[in-house]
Nucleic acid binder design. Structure first.
Lengths: 339, 339
DNA sequence: ATGAAAGCGCTAACAC
DNA sequence: GTGTTAGCGCTTTCAT
């Protein structure tokens, strides 16, 4: 100590009121001169909180995941929390337990789970001292605190739009069914068609990539050359569909109308510009953080099950334009439940 | 303690040899039954290392950044290191010092700096107890340990390809000059043209987005309607260029040939498929981690300045096809310096 | 307004 | 093989 000693320094650092101005500035000077940085590690140890949130995700290369992380980083930064990142292998079921243990040993104050899917057995076997968690991509049926995009509503929007356009033979390009999003979108597509008295068209599968969109579209055509509409489960695969249609001389939307899902910015510059369902993904990330912080504040209610759903909206562009007789149904579902 | 006491437990956890088998299994049983997780925080405190790497980046929404992070996560996971993530605002100069202080207070073992640019004054003013750092996006002139993509070589490759194609009026769509990548690519474009005895065409600027590609292309046409080739500084903006060309009835590559930069997977499904320069970004992330770990091991050489450059390669597609008389110059530069 | 003592959960160094 | 002692750098509690 270059003057007085230890306890007072702590008080200065934490801006406690009970320090005399002269002592304070003396200490501050000393700190600055040595370039001293208090150890967050030691502080975490004694205070039993790390001001750190754990994030577990997979598939950073996908638009949606990166976008969500963006929102998470944003909100946690604003709240003064650091982010401990864990990317897991996306293929196959994620074994969540080791990751949980890791986060627990790191004493994170909360965990955001944004990997594609969780083992069903999870809720039962959560380690004892687990910090609060929020799940972003599971379905609500798990009984875990969950925030999701309204995939069902979004897919319904997309499919209904194709129906309103007068299409009758509507196919679907789905994502890998290990992803909850892929299941929901396919489901809603099918139900919407049935509800409209139409027979569902063929389904092909891809792994979200644009190259898969190409092959999936080929499969659809092979299964039924007469399709006049396609709902594609994400924008990247939709790009592949548009590409292959162009290559084969199939007019979009003339012969086949195409609707995507994601709302990535680039979709407006596809050829033709893509009608797509916009997901509030950044919002999703922010919500997750806020929800987590809220949960941490009020420990009394461990039973209050969180199930929030963020709504989507349809952006209509040339790949599946408005019906001729339309009024203004562009944003027929607002972004509710947010902020 | 449910049997013996503290030190032995530590030995069991760390798999030390000097524990009797019976004691070991007893302790392990106890640990499992309580669901005990050792505190990484306390361990960090006493060992003065956190097994954590700090990553500072901005612009997660951009293909390149997310891709790099992917590589970083990959390699650090493999090496048993956790990742502390800090996203900063990309617009304008990043004030790195607060972030450094944050990381220092968190006692990270190393720092990867992947934000667009660093203040020139940095090298001088680095805090005293800074852990080893690696810079991914700065140019080598800073005197800091740096790993970069060979933007200059890549841009040269792209431009030369257009020249070889017989184009004579070659324009450029550049990124924001605050990014070192944008500066290098523009520079190399210009030099390559001059070296070939051609006058550089017009330059327009964008902020990496596909929408900016549209407007930038319009600006180029306004400046010089006779351009017959465009080198675009990233694939997303190139998408905008292709889109706008199509909209205006300009044939690609017939009237104007287009070459991008990034090598994003989707480029193969653009209309027409995009000729582009592939960057080994995931590799870049991995290299960064490995370099950092290596530096941490051998403290003796603080002066050994690291300056590695990862080479790019050109993928030729329809937007700027091979010259008619070509042999096989597709991969005329290999991915050297890697692995 | 300041200091002294104790302890957060672990490991290193040395006994035994 | 196992226990003891000490201390990592901080904050709490209680004296002064």
């Amino acid at each position: 100590m270059c003057g007085v000693s230890t306890q007072t320094v702590s008080r200065v650092i934490n801006n406690r009121p009970d320090v005399s101005p002269v002592t304070r500035s003396a200490v501050e000077a000393a700190i600055a001169s040595v370039g001293f940085q208090p150890s967050a590690v030691a502080r975490s140890l004694v205070q039993r909180r790390s001001l750190t949130l754990g994030v577990i995700l997979s598939g950073l290369q996908f638009f949606g995941v990166a976008q969500t992380l963006n929102g998470i980083a944003d909100a946690s930064e604003a709240a003064g929390y650091a982010l401990l990142l864990k990317e897991v292998d996306g293929s196959g079921q994620v074994d969540i337990l080791p990751v949980m243990d890791f986060f627990i040993s790191q004493r994170v104050d909360g965990i955001i789970f944004a990997a594609p899917d969780v083992g069903r057995n999870l809720s039962a076997s959560l380690p004892a001292g687990s910090p609060p968690m929020v799940f972003l991509k599971s379905d609500h049926s798990t009984g875990l605190p969950t925030i999701t995009i309204d995939n069902i509503g979004g897919a319904r929007l997309a499919t209904q739009h194709l129906i309103d356009l007068g299409r009758r033979r509507i196919a679907h390009v789905a994502g890998p069914l290990a992803w909850h999003e892929a299941r929901d979108r396919r489901e809603a597509w099918q139900e919407t068609l049935l509800a409209a008295g139409l027979e569902p068209g063929p389904v092909a599968y891809g792994t979200w990539t644009s190259a898969d969109g190409v092959t999936a579209f080929e499969e659809l055509l092979a299964m039924d050359p007469a399709i006049d509409g396609v709902f594609v489960a994400n924008d990247q695969m939709a790009l592949g569909v548009l590409h292959q249609a162009h290559r084969r001389g199939i007019a979009v939307p003339g012969d086949i109308a195409v609707v995507g899902f994601d709302g990535m910015e680039e979709a407006a510059q596809f050829t033709p510009p893509l009608t797509t369902v916009v997901q509030p993904l950044r919002e999703l990330g922010r919500e997750a953080v806020q929800e987590l912080l809220a949960t941490m504040d009020e420990e009394p209610h461990p039973g209050a099950e969180l199930r929030r759903t963020l709504l989507t909206r349809l952006i209509v562009r040339e790949s599946a334009p408005l019906p001729a007789s339309a009024s203004t149904p562009t944003d027929d579902r607002a972004l509710a439940g947010a902020a």
